[in-house]
């Protein structure tokens, strides 16, 4: 990973707005700042703007108004840098996987960055090792299970060496072991010092590991703060309160 500049938050927005025609949905005046190494959960009902916000951080969308900064540099000024530094794992892993084999898919990102063959090979091996995919290196992604496919999507992003990893609904359509596999990887990436931004509408699985909870509603930030402060407010915004919180207990990890 490139050297860190600790003076800037890794991600920040000022007055970010985006509008999709003809629905009028999008983002409205989003201002936030995410310090390096933080584990943030972005929650909200469907259509609240979570995925749109993530795409702005990765440079896939350009703001209609406002600015998005990545480590002190506007994303719009250098979208290629944003894509290198901010990895985005999409909700639909099947559509994200482009390689004909697991190894080819993980190599796709590093090859796009024009790394040397040795560097690509090393990045692919490291990502496969970390995500437990080494034994599947020559398999077709089409033949993988849902959990394996989601791990492959994460490996493809991780091989590019991003400082920030964003995951859009990473637990969707996964069974319990699949959710635990993916959650374990997310927690491990955070343990390595990466900033994690995870969009979810079901908090139960992940909120035990998060340091900050941001609630989005109708394209705006409705609540933002430490998990313990924001959690009691979530049901006002159509987000289900985890069972343990409902019973007055603290939310524990799904990995225990």
């Amino acid at each position: 990973m490139p050297p860190h500049d600790h003076h800037h938050p890794i991600l920040a927005t000022q007055g970010l707005s985006h509008r999709f025609k003809p629905s009028g949905r999008g983002l409205h005046d989003i201002t936030l700042s995410i310090p390096r190494g933080q584990f943030v959960v972005l929650a909200g009902p469907n259509g609240s703007g979570k995925s749109t916000l993530l795409r702005h951080f990765n440079g896939l969308l350009t703001p209609r108004a406002g600015t998005v900064w990545l480590d002190g540099v506007p994303v719009a000024a250098d979208p290629a840098r944003a894509r290198r530094m901010v990895g985005l794992v999409f909700q639909d892993a099947e559509s994200q996987i482009v390689g004909e084999t697991v190894r080819d898919d993980i190599a796709f990102g590093p090859e796009n960055l024009c790394w040397s063959c040795d560097a690509v090979d090393a990045a692919v091996r490291a990502a496969m090792d970390q995500l437990g995919l080494t034994h599947l290196a020559d398999e077709s992604p089409h033949l993988l299970s849902g959990g394996e496919r989601r791990r492959l999507a994460i490996a493809g992003v991780l091989a590019m060496g991003p400082e920030v990893v964003m995951l859009d609904e990473p637990f969707a359509n996964l069974d319990y072991p699949g959710i635990r596999e993916v959650l374990r990887q997310v927690v491990a990436m955070h343990g390595q010092g990466r900033t994690i931004l995870l969009a979810a509408h079901d908090l139960e699985k992940v909120v035990g590991h998060a340091q900050r909870l941001i609630i989005m509603d109708k394209g705006r930030i409705a609540a933002d703060g430490p998990v313990v402060d924001v959690l009691p407010l979530v049901e006002q915004y159509d987000v289900r309160l985890p069972c343990q919180a409902r019973l007055g207990m603290s939310v524990t990890s799904w990995l225990n």
Partner: peptide
């Protein structure tokens, strides 16, 4: 979209 997010462009290794 996913390819763009992974820096797909005119040049590759």
């Amino acid at each position: 979209l996913a390819m763009a997010a992974r820096s797909f462009g005119d040049r590759r290794t």
